[in-house]
Design a protein around this nucleic acid. Sequence first.
DNA 1: AGGCAATGTTGACAACGTCAACATTGCCCG
DNA 2: CGGGCAATGTTGACGTTGTCAACATTGCCT
Lengths: 198, 198
Amino acid sequence: MRPSSGDYHHGNLRQALLDAAHEQLCDAGIGAVGMREIARRVGVSHAAPYRHYANLDALLADLATSGFRELEQRFAHLPAIAEPEARFTAMAATYVEFASDRPQLWRLMFGDALDKTGHPQLLEVSQAVFANLQETLLALGVAAPAINEALAAWAMAHGVARLALDRRLDAHLNLAMDANTLVDTAARIFLAGLRNLR
Amino acid sequence: MRPSSGDYHHGNLRQALLDAAHEQLCDAGIGAVGMREIARRVGVSHAAPYRHYANLDALLADLATSGFRELEQRFAHLPAIAEPEARFTAMAATYVEFASDRPQLWRLMFGDALDKTGHPQLLEVSQAVFANLQETLLALGVAAPAINEALAAWAMAHGVARLALDRRLDAHLNLAMDANTLVDTAARIFLAGLRNLR
DNA sequence: AGGCAATGTTGACAACGTCAACATTGCCCG
DNA sequence: CGGGCAATGTTGACGTTGTCAACATTGCCT
């Protein structure tokens, strides 16, 4: 199905909408992403998206889902580091790096602009990401199920990412410091604490 | 100035607007807070708020500022704990507790619904909160300026709060666990790490 | 007492999300 | 091969919102 003859039918609007929404998100932030604006970007009438998404939230949920998949990919393509502690640090760094590479997407995924309840796919992919982290923790020799520790680690990386995104680091620091060195410090403290406790 | 005679003039609308906005925020979440709704709640015409706030963002910024002041108060009224490590743990717990007591307010303060740039008061109060944490870290014997460690600690507490608020804990846990025990775990790991590193 | 600045009201505008009614197209089945 | 049906896109409408301008009302100061 192509836009060969008359371009009344688009071809595959759904993906085009997603792409346009993604561009708009990166360009202008979450507040600027609206049904009409997306339709405008694709060059289609303002109500056309409703043939593919029940409402704006559904579209945003789909966008967030693709974000989680990308994050998962980054974890998957992490260089194979055998040593567990180094791997843990690398994962935390990857997490923060993703947030700093795609700040708007990250905000959509973890912020409160989108109500996540009622989007099972979204829940599923986010759980997959967490499972990945938990496995690494297990390799550290933490006793199963290691839930506490895994969550604490996640919280740490998550907090670093958010503080960095909100520019609270810039605001509170005279000296130069970026999220990367901060997450390193935090990971080092965390690992030392784990060693010390068991 | 009271609403004694004809109630054309309200008395002190500014505070009434803030109160109404706060109620609406707690009742229905950040998405439901709008100029017209606030005015409706106070019983005043839809454009009246503009005599006191340039726009909705300005009002929300004021609300967030009051939130930071309340958080500051909680730190100030913390029971006097001399032992630095216990005090640190108590502060982290207080932080998370605030988030769980006033989730919507916390979202406003730390979420991305409100653009914080261009609100100097807001920046000021949030810096004051951070300074408080940094002092406690100093008492732990961390070398001045201890910026790295203070930020890492903040990130940890912040991450716990956010994961809890977003119900990601519920989503990922079969067993029962709340933010309180999690922040305890995280604080213990963090402190053990600090001891181990120096 | 009178006038001015502060404060509140009314009405308007553009933009938005969403729905219903209608138009157009591709595809499948006889 | 043709006709109809389901999928998809368009148009127009409704109610809502943030914000502004013009106007009304009030309290305070001289």
